[in-house]
């Protein structure tokens, strides 16, 4: 474990806490893409299939459980909780996210570290996470003004994988045989997808103005 990865995991956890705060405090999921939340639930379920078979550390197991439980809780809130469900705007959240699931799984069948059930689902979760934010970014562009908590949620979610890139550089430089091409390349693509969001987020922070993504 290095400082970049710990900072990355904490930033990821923070993004989830900010989203939970937004939904709990405002009893609304306006501006939040249910589809992105569903994709993240699939990402965690597919990636942590080894939750009960491979014990790496208490921290690792604890965080896996937190990520799985929180992502399922958020999807449950948006789908079932009467107050929150009413605020979900399905006419804005129209990205065909099942195409992302299909494409990621197909890619995992061809590009993986080992042709085993666990490794194919692990690669699938890595590819899917790289594109999971797309429905959310499309929704933000459509919904015009973005409330602060939703903007912060997306910012921290994008920043966490950026910190992981620093972690991979650090591990590459310090560990003799460290190579994680699937995670690295996918992580760079994932972070790059946030580039324009980061730009507009920085502008809104600099001008102390409302975050607005151009349509």
């Amino acid at each position: 474990m290095n400082i970049f990865r710990l900072a990355g995991d904490m930033t990821h956890l923070l993004s989830i806490l900010v989203l939970l705060l937004k939904i709990y405090a405002t009893k609304s999921c306006s501006g939040v893409s249910r589809k992105t939340q569903e994709l993240y639930a699939i990402v965690f379920l597919a990636r942590y299939l080894d939750l009960f078979t491979d014990f790496i550390s208490v921290y690792n197991t604890f965080m896996k459980i937190v990520f799985i439980a929180s992502s399922l809780a958020i999807v449950w809130c948006i789908r079932v909780h009467p107050m929150v469900k009413r605020s979900y705007d399905k006419d804005l959240d129209t990205f065909r996210h099942y195409l992302l699931v299909a494409a990621s799984f197909l890619l995992a069948l061809f590009l993986h570290e080992k042709f085993t059930f666990l490794e194919i689902f692990w690669a699938f979760s890595i590819y899917l996470e790289a594109v999971a934010i797309l429905p959310q970014l499309v929704l933000l562009q459509r919904s015009g003004n973005v409330d602060n908590l939703t903007g912060q949620y997306v910012f921290f979610l994008g920043a966490y994988r950026g910190l992981y890139i620093l972690n991979w550089i650090y591990r590459y430089l310090t560990e003799p045989r460290f190579t994680r091409w699937i995670a690295c390349v996918s992580g760079v693509v994932q972070t790059a997808l946030y580039a324009d969001f980061f730009y507009y987020y920085f502008i809104s922070w600099k001008n102390n103005s409302k975050l607005k993504l151009p349509a």
């Binding site: 990821h12 080894d50 491979d54 790496i56 690792n60 896996k64 990520f67 080992k114 992981y164 994680r180």
Partner: peptide, 10 residues
């Protein structure tokens, strides 16, 4: 796990 190496990252 790949050649004995766990996916030790989240």
């Amino acid at each position: 796990t790949v050649d004995g190496k766990y996916h030790d990252e989240l």
